[in-house]
Write a protein that binds this DNA or RNA. Structure first.
Lengths: 210, 210
DNA sequence: AAATATAATTAACAGTGTTAATTTTCCAAA
DNA sequence: TTTGGAAAATTAACACTGTTAATTATATTT
């Protein structure tokens, strides 16, 4: 049945066209400018056609948010070469901040916007694997640090939550313009780095206090 | 001129009516359900009348976001009786989490939504005094802790950023549904408390490691 | 009472996501 | 090769949104 096969391929092609158009609008004009009608214009189909390939707009944002995670994983490739897990943790934090600040729109849809999560809640096999993997790798890294005695032992989910919270908190406050009147734009990333360095410095057992 | 005075009072009354209606919609139906037409319906005026008292919708959200800060300051009254500044810092963190989790809509408009900040950026005397005051009191408290040798000395803006980031990060991840698949709903606040306790425990100089 | 300033309204614009009903396109069987 | 039916795409419409220009109604002043 080569015909059904080709049809399936065509279906996937149009699906990709929609996602590509969404992505183009997303990165060039921002979240709010990704509208069904603009997507339809770009791919030269009528607006309703989009609904033959995606349940609703949230589903499109779910795909965009997944692409964001892929982008982030790609950026974290530079961690592989770092043998010391504590050094890897430092760098992971820096990567996170760099990703968030240089791809603010992606960060927004990955960690702030409600749309992708609303999509998830309507799915049955509901997992948020992207987020689970991200926080999972932080947990694993922290366990490795604790096992090797590089940081003080503590319940890993508590420490993971604190560290993720810290970096996410700083990045999301910056993205949503809560720091503009507090820290000058050009010093933002520098202060963020100092903050994670301060945190990791205090839990680093190789730096003995007093 | 008692007449101009009365007119001014009437103007303020209608302004208050609009804000009260906005608030009612906001707390009962959420951010997205605060629409100009619904506000107009509630106060029994036409939608365009709202624009005679407020520049745009963002300005209404700016007022709501300020009311949120007042609510938060009120909640922080219980800090006054705590003599030990480090204990005050603990309690401040717990208050922050409690406020965010029990008044999620308010927290949203205060620290996540763009609307109030967009309003600010169109004003000339642009200050975000509400946020400045909040972060300012954290800074002062940290300085007091450092002066009394209760926590290790470090650049105060770096530590303030880290602590605010940590609590805001956890709360905003929770509010925007990024933790539902990671931490059970009923354990959320408990883990958050553990995370701030973990952080403050590590910088508390009275708890000597090793 | 007439003229003027203020307040409020109606009507409209340009958009949004989404759905039902209809038309067009395409493939398989007669 | 023509016909019947399934699949794909479209048009038209609904019920909204924030916001503005033009118009009407209400007060106040002359």
């Amino acid at each position: 049945m080569g015909i059904a096969e080709r049809k399936e391929k065509q279906k996937q092609d149009i699906k990709k066209m929609i996602l590509d158009a969404s992505m183009k609008l997303f990165v060039e004009e921002g979240f709010d400018n990704v509208t069904i009608r603009k997507i339809a214009d770009l791919i030269q189909y009528s607006p309703t056609t989009v609904y033959l390939y995606f349940k609703d707009k949230n589903e499109i944002f779910f795909y965009l948010h997944q692409l964001g995670f892929e982008k982030m994983i790609e950026l974290n490739q530079n961690l592989a070469g770092i043998a010391n897990p504590l050094m890897r943790l430092y760098k992971m934090g820096e990567n996170y901040i760099q990703f968030g600040m240089t791809h603010q729109e992606f960060y927004d849809v990955m960690f702030i916007q409600r749309a992708p999560m609303e999509c998830l809640s309507t799915m049955e096999n509901c997992e948020w694997s992207a987020g689970d993997t991200a926080i999972g790798s932080l947990r694993t890294l922290l366990e490795e640090c604790m096992d090797k005695g590089l940081i003080q032992k503590a319940p890993v989910e508590v420490v993971a939550m604190a560290i993720w919270g810290l970096v996410h908190g700083m990045v999301s406050l910056a993205i949503r313009d809560r720091l503009i009147k507090i820290i000058p734009q050009e010093q933002l990333v520098k202060v963020m780095h100092q903050s994670i360095n301060w945190l990791l410095g205090t839990i680093d057992t190789s730096i003995k206090p007093n």
